[in-house]
Design a protein around this nucleic acid. Structure first.
Length: 272
DNA sequence: TACCAGGTTTGCA
DNA sequence: TGCAAACATGGT
């Protein structure tokens, strides 16, 4: 919830109930015991959506044990990130959310996303609880290039509008064929959208498309790869993304296929 | 005040 | 192909 992979999940301070928003859905979660939770959805909706959303088919326990044996730093990250899963979120929501994320801190990202939802998201109601869905691409596109003004998006306004317009017209990205692409193919396809570069494309692949080997390189990860894994000298921040990507592949070769989960545990640990 | 943020685009070698 | 500057806005 606080590890920068989902921006619309909140804990109600009074009741302790978690509210999880995804696309046009909302889910209420309550901890009922030691690692047990009640879900507000029907068993059918759980099977059809939330089970995959929470990535319940992936073996995190095995990865966790492996991480604990992988040197003190990774072990620390795994231990302090116990319970952090890499979710399978809505594609368009991740595209827009991570376009917004560039050059912003997490609290500001949340604010921008909520503002976007308030303006363009369909108003919905579940059990008396009113909320705004994440906007449909059509709603953003229909409002025109000036429709996204006044939301503190800055230069990202153009990226968001153009991405919404392109997405509306893009039948391929909504087809099963897109989901069948390889990781590299999907990433390259996403980068054709304005505002989606290497890092954001990796985030989308990891958080929406299930490519658990995606390894987004951002300023935090650069700092960590330098500090903990001896990548680069004092000018390491000027090194290209490719250098960090290769370094990560080398350092985390043991986790091939699931590097993105390790990345997320590292990230969650560092921003705590 | 100066610097920086889960970067990307643009323009120029 | 690769590099540096420009890009809005808000927080520290």
């Amino acid at each position: 919830m606080n590890s920068g992979e989902i921006f619309r999940m909140y804990k109600d301070a009074e009741s302790g109930i978690f509210r999880v928003f995804s696309g046009d859905k909302v889910l209420f979660l309550q901890e009922t015991g030691e690692e047990t939770f009640s879900f507000s959805c029907s068993p059918d909706e759980f099977e059809k959506y939330w089970s995959r959303f929470f990535d319940l088919e992936t073996d995190y326990a095995g990865l966790y044990k492996k991480a604990l044996r992988s040197g003190p730093y990774i072990a620390d990250c795994a231990a302090s990130s116990y319970g952090v899963r890499v979710l399978n979120q809505d594609l368009f929501e991740m595209m827009i959310s991570f376009i917004i994320s560039q050059q912003k801190r997490i609290p500001e990202i949340r604010k921008c996303i909520e503002a976007l939802c308030a303006r363009f998201g369909e108003k919905k109601c579940l059990n008396g609880f009113e909320y705004h869905a994440f906007p449909d691409a059509k709603a953003i596109a229909a409002a025109g290039p000036d429709g996204v003004k006044g939301l503190s998006l800055g230069y990202r306004e153009r990226y968001i509008y153009e991405t919404a317009v392109k997405y509306v017209a893009d039948d391929f990205i909504k087809s099963p064929a897109f989901r069948a692409l390889s990781f590299d193919e999907a990433k390259a396809y996403l980068k054709q959208y304005c505002g989606i570069g290497e890092k954001v494309a990796n985030c989308i692949c990891l958080f929406a498309l299930g490519y658990k080997d995606a390894f987004p390189i951002d300023v935090h990860i650069k700092d960590i790869l330098h500090r903990e894994f001896n990548v680069g000298d004092d000018n390491y921040r000027t090194l290209s993304d490719a250098v960090f990507t290769k370094a990560a592949a080398d350092r985390f070769a043991d986790f091939a296929g699931a590097k993105g989960i390790i990345q997320q545990w590292i990230f969650a640990h560092e921003i705590k």
